[in-house]
Nucleic acid binder design. Structure first.
Lengths: 239, 239, 239, 239
DNA sequence: GATGAATGAGTGTTCATTCAT
DNA sequence: TATGAATGAACACTCATTCAT
C-alpha cells in the first residue's frame, strides 16, 4: 500500500493518481476540440466528459459550469506565449524583413497549424455571447499581439528598412491574413478541404511577400511567390 | 410595389394584406439580425418571431424548421450581385489600380458597411454545423468572388500594370482583409467599440495601399496612407 | 370544422378552451396536495403536472419555477379570508363565549377540516427554507389571525364576560390548539389514523371548554366536555 | 471518561482515538442541527460531514445511507427520559397543580429550551416521508408522554383537586401548547425573532394558568398571568 | 479507519415544434 | 392565415453513494 511496496514493473503511480492531476488538462483538451468543431451551444457537456474519458459529474468537479469550462478553455490556450515571443523578438539578429518572416512562420507552427488556432475561431464566433471573455481576449491576446507587430514594424522603420507607414493600421495589415487563415481553416476549410487553394504554407508566403512589398523601401524586383502550378507541385489541380 | 401605385379603389393593398406579403421578408430580416448577433443555437425562434411582430406559430407557417429558417436567411442574403459587378468591371475605363480601389470601395458601401456583412460572419461561425449550406455559399459567393478578383488581377497583369503574381493565392491576399473586417465588425468590434483602431474606411485604405504596393510594377514612392493624427508622420512616433 | 358545425349535443366550449382558464387553478390544487403530502423537496414537478393532467412544460408556462409555484400555492390558499371573518365578528350578536365557539367551529369547517390546513403544516415545515414567504405568511396570516382573536378576547373583557387576561399571550393560548391540530393532521395523524384520540371535533370542543374555563368570569360548574365513550356517539369505534 | 482520569502513561486517550470514538455522535449532532433547520431533503450529506469535521466518505462508514442517518438521528434523540420522569412524578409530594407546573417547567428546561425540541419539529415535518419512524416515535415518545400527562391528571382527579375531565382529550389540551411552542421555535420563530410575543417562559406561564383554570375545582380568582406591560405587575419589569 | 475523486441516476428547466381554434 | 397553449425530448447540473488508495 505504501509507494515503496509497488512492484518495480508496475507503472509508477496508479491509474487513479495519475488521472487526478491530468483531469483538468484532459477535459480542457476535449472541450477545445468540441467547442472548435461545433461551437459552444452545440457542444454537450456529456460529450466533453466522454471524450476526456470521465463521467459528466467529474467534469463539474473541475469546472463549475459549462460557461466556466469555456472560459477556462480560452484562457488555458493563450497562456503567456507573448512573453516568450517578445524575448525572441528583442534578441533577433537579422534584418527586419527576416524577422517578420520568422514571426509568420513561428506563428504558423505554434498557433496557426495547431489546435490553438481554433480558439480564435471560437472567439470570433461567440464573442457577442461572452462579452466578459471577449474583453479578456482583447486584453490578453489581441492587444499584446498588436504590440508585438507594432514593435517589429517600428524596428524596420528605425533601421531604415521599412517605409514610414502609419503604425495604427499596419498592424491590421499584418495580422488580418493570419486571422483570416484561422477562421477559414475552422469553417469553410473544414467542410470543403482544399477550398483555400493548395497549402496554407503557400498562402502565408504569398501574404508575407505582399506585406513586405508594402513595407520595404527596396522590395524584391521579381515575384518570389511560389506558384501552385510551379514544377515543385503536382500539376493535377492547377488552373 | 410602392404604396402610391395602389389604385385608390382597390380593396387589395390594405395594411393587413401588404403585411401578409411582407411576413417572410420581415422574418428573414429579424432572423439575420439575431443569428449574426448570437449565433444559430443561441437564437430563440420566439425572439425572431417577436422581432418580426408575429407569433411563434406564424414563423413555422413560413419556415418548416429553425434550420430551414437559417438556410433561407443565408440563401436570401446571397443575392447574385456578382453579375452586376462583373458588368461594372468589364466596362471599367480607368487603370487597374483604380479599378481595384473602386472594387474595395463599392464592396464596403454595399456589403461591408451594411448588414449584408453579417452573413459572412454567420457563415464562418456556423459553417461546420451546416456543411450543405457551406457548400452552397462556396459555390454562390466564394468562388464567384474569387473569380471576380482574379479577373481584375489578370487585367492588371495583361495590361502590364501589375507584376505577374500567382493568381491562386493573390485572390486571398485581396479578399482576406475584407473578410477579416466583416468578422471583426460582428464580433470583437461589436463588444469593444473602437477596438479596431479608428475607422474602417482608413483600415480599408491601408489595405488597398498595401495590396497595390505588392501588385504594382511601379508603386507610389511615398506612403499615401492617411494617418488619422499626423500630417506626414515621420518623427512623430519613432523613438 | 367551423364552430357552427358543432353538433348541438357537443359539450359547449371545447376542451382546450375550458382548460386554459382552469390551468393555474388545477396546477395549484395538484401542487397543494403534493407539497402537503411530501414536502417541497420531495415533490417532483412532473408529478404535479401529471396530477393536473398537463405536461411538465405546461407547468412552467404558468409558474416560472418550482419555488414560485410553492409561493403561489401558499398565497393562493390564504386569499383574504380575514376580511370576511372580521365582518362576521363585528356583527356577531351573541355573547363572547358563543362568539369564540363560533370562531373555532367556523375555522374548523373552512380551514382545519379542509386542504387549506395543509398550508400551515407546509409553512412550519419549510419556513427556514423560504424566509421570504415566511415573512409573507407572518404578515398575511399570522398577524391578522392574532388580531382577530385579540379583538374577540377584548370584546369579552369589555363586556365583563372574560377576566382581564393579558392579551399578548392569550392569543397563543387560543391559537396554539388550532395550529397543533393542523400539524398533527398532516403528520402523525396521516400516518397513524386515530392516533389523536377519536374525532377532531371532540378535540376542539375540549380545547374550547378549557379555554373558556380560563377566560370566563363564571365558568360552567360541571365538565361539559363530551366523552368519547359517551352515548351520544355512534358506538362503532368506542374504546 | 473525563480527561483527568486518563493515566498519564496510557497511550490510549490520544486526541485521535478519542475523536474516533466520538465520530458517530458528532455526526448525529451535526445531522440533527441541519435536518431541523432545513428538513431531510434539503440537507446535504456533504454539509453534515463538513460540520462534523469529517469527509463525506467517513459519514457512510458509520451510516449506510442518508435515510439511515435520519433514523439514527431520531432514535438517538429519543432517549427514554420518561422512566426518569415517571419516577419524579410518583415521588412528588406537593399538590397536583404544583406537579403540573413542575412538569411544564422541567420539560421546558430539558426539552423545549434545548436542541432536543428540534426532534419534534423534525418528526412533524417529515412524518409522512418516514412512516416507520413515525410509528417508532409514536410508541417511544408520544404514547409515553401522553401516559405521563394522563397519570398526572388522574392524580389530580383522584385527590379531588381537578374536575373529572375526560382524560382522552385533556392530554392534548396539556400537550398541544408544548408542541406548538417547539414547532414555532424552529420555524417561524427562527425566521422572525420575537414573532411569538415576548418570551417563551411567559408563554408557558400563560398556558399553565389557562390549563389550571380549566382543570382546577377552585381556580384562582384573579388573573395571575404576568403581563409584560400592564401596571398590575411588580415594577421590577414594567415600564 | 479515513479520504476524496469518481460516478450516474435523477431533477428542474428550456425551447423547437405542433395543432385546435 | 394566424394564434398561442401545449408538448416532450433534450439539456445542464446535483448529490447520494462507491471505492481505490
Amino acid at each position: 500500500m505504501s509507494p515503496t511496496s509497488t512492484p518495480p514493473n508496475a507503472p509508477a503511480g496508479t491509474k487513479r493518481e495519475r488521472r487526478k492531476e491530468a483531469r483538468p488538462g484532459e477535459l480542457l483538451e476535449a472541450a477545445l476540440d468540441l467547442f472548435v468543431e461545433k461551437g459552444f451551444a452545440a457542444t454537450r457537456v456529456d460529450e466533453v466528459a466522454a471524450r476526456a474519458g470521465v463521467s459528466k459529474g467529474t467534469l463539474f468537479l473541475y469546472f463549475p459550469s459549462k460557461e466556466e469550462l469555456f472560459k477556462a478553455v480560452v484562457r488555458h490556450n493563450i497562456a503567456g506565449r507573448f512573453e516568450e515571443w517578445r524575448g525572441e523578438l528583442e534578441s533577433f539578429e537579422g534584418n527586419t524583413s527576416e524577422l517578420l518572416q520568422y514571426c509568420y512562420q513561428v506563428w504558423w507552427e505554434r498557433i496557426g497549424a495547431t489546435k490553438a488556432s481554433g480558439i480564435t475561431k471560437l472567439m470570433f464566433s461567440e464573442a457577442q455571447n461572452f462579452p466578459e471573455i471577449t474583453e479578456f481576449y482583447q486584453q490578453e491576446v489581441i492587444l499584446p499581439g498588436q504590440a508585438l507587430i507594432r514593435r517589429i514594424v517600428e524596428r524596420g522603420i528605425e533601421r531604415g528598412e521599412f517605409r514610414p507607414v502609419p503604425l495604427d493600421y499596419i498592424v491590421h495589415v499584418v495580422l488580418a491574413p493570419m486571422i483570416f487563415l484561422m477562421m477559414w481553416k475552422h469553417s469553410v476549410g473544414a467542410c470543403i478541404p482544399d477550398s483555400l487553394g493548395l497549402r496554407p504554407e503557400l498562402y502565408i508566403e504569398a501574404q508575407i511577400d505582399n506585406v513586405l512589398h508594402g513595407l520595404l523601401v527596396r522590395p524584391p524586383a521579381s515575384p518570389p511567390i511560389p506558384s501552385p502550378s510551379s514544377p515543385s507541385l503536382p500539376p493535377s489541380r492547377g488552373t
